[in-house]
């Protein structure tokens, strides 16, 4: 199975889209080699602008570009995009509903050795809370390429959360994707694992291992965290009667929160959340950190067993 970092797929997708659509403008804040917008910069230097280390201004400039008819993609690390420039995103991009695409890389603890100051575990919560914002968290390189194109075609603000490390390729090139639609990547009847981003690979591994002990699980890739695919979540709750959520993010305000609030209102079933439990990240290598923060296939397996016991 090939492994690709979603940030690399983003950089590649931008270059391809740039050739087709001349209204795309790319902005970056001194991290173009890391966010992979450098490829676009090499190919279309006249449509790439460095904002310098000034994320708040970058978001404001993106708003202006969008107001003047361009489709800006603004990139930096997730912590500086959703965090540093939060209020500019809220008031200059989402409030006026401007067509800005924010592609934020290095999300979650798999940033690794740079440590907790650079590991964004709150960005889904922040971006999800703002009206008009669409939040995408792709699981692999193939879906990233599709979702970047769909984000371009979509009218309105979109936040795309991307990772630093390589992840398993889950999809085939010509699989169908749509914003707002969960993808069932495996079916089962004992519980459903709803995951996004890198946790989809962990969920699939957990599902494979569980099946060896006779437990079958459905796995939903919730690449669109907002708007949530309500139908897919409610069907999973009704048909499998137990849900595990899995995200490389705080359990406060992220995918788990989105799923649990929906279920609490419409169809309460037992839920276990796999995610960061109200702690900051720290330095370490990505695999170690996934273990330290309870974000591995083994943690999902434990959560599935627990949730089934609560049925």
């Amino acid at each position: 199975m090939s492994k690709v970092a979603t940030r690399d797929a983003y950089g590649q997708a931008l270059v391809e889209l740039g050739g087709q659509y001349s209204d795309i403008i790319v902005l970056d804040a001194d991290l173009s080699k890391s966010t992979k917008t450098a490829k676009f910069k090499e190919t279309y230097p006249e449509r790439f602008f460095s904002a310098g280390i000034a994320e708040a201004n970058m978001m404001g400039v993106a708003a202006g570009l969008a107001a003047a008819g361009k489709v800006p993609f603004a990139s930096t690390f997730a912590i500086f995009a959703a965090g540093r420039a939060f209020e500019q995103i809220r008031n200059s991009i989402c409030y006026p509903d401007l067509n800005v695409k924010i592609a934020a890389t290095h999300a979650g603890v798999t940033v690794g050795a740079d440590g907790g100051s650079h590991q964004s575990i709150e960005d889904i919560a922040l971006m999800r809370a703002v009206p008009n914002m669409t939040v995408l968290v792709p699981a692999d390189g193939v879906s990233t390429a599709h979702l970047i194109k769909l984000a371009y075609q979509f009218a309105g603000p979109v936040y795309i959360r991307l990772g630093r490390t390589k992840v398993d390729t889950v999809y085939q090139k010509d699989d169908f994707f749509a914003i707002g639609e969960a993808k069932m990547v495996r079916d089962g009847k004992d519980a459903t694992i709803i995951a996004c981003g890198l946790m989809v690979q962990e969920a699939l591994q957990a599902a494979r291992e569980l099946s060896l002990s006779g437990i079958t699980t459905r796995v939903l890739d919730m690449a669109t965290v907002k708007p949530l695919d309500i139908g897919a979540v409610l069907r999973a709750a009704k048909e499998t009667k137990a849900i595990v959520t899995a995200e490389e993010h705080s359990i406060i305000g992220g995918l788990g929160s989105a799923v649990t609030s929906l279920l609490a209102e419409h169809h309460p079933v037992p839920v276990q959340m796999v995610g960061v439990r109200d702690r900051f990240g720290q330095s370490g290598d990505p695999a170690e950190l996934l273990r330290e923060y309870g974000l591995t296939a083994d943690d999902i397996i434990a959560a599935v067993k627990k949730v089934i016991s609560r049925k």
């Binding site: 907790g116 100051s117 650079h118 330095s283």
Partner: peptide
């Protein structure tokens, strides 16, 4: 430096 559990985080803490 930069190892899991170290007080010497990637950025000063």
């Amino acid at each position: 430096l930069r190892k899991l559990g170290s007080p010497l985080q990637g950025h000063p803490d």
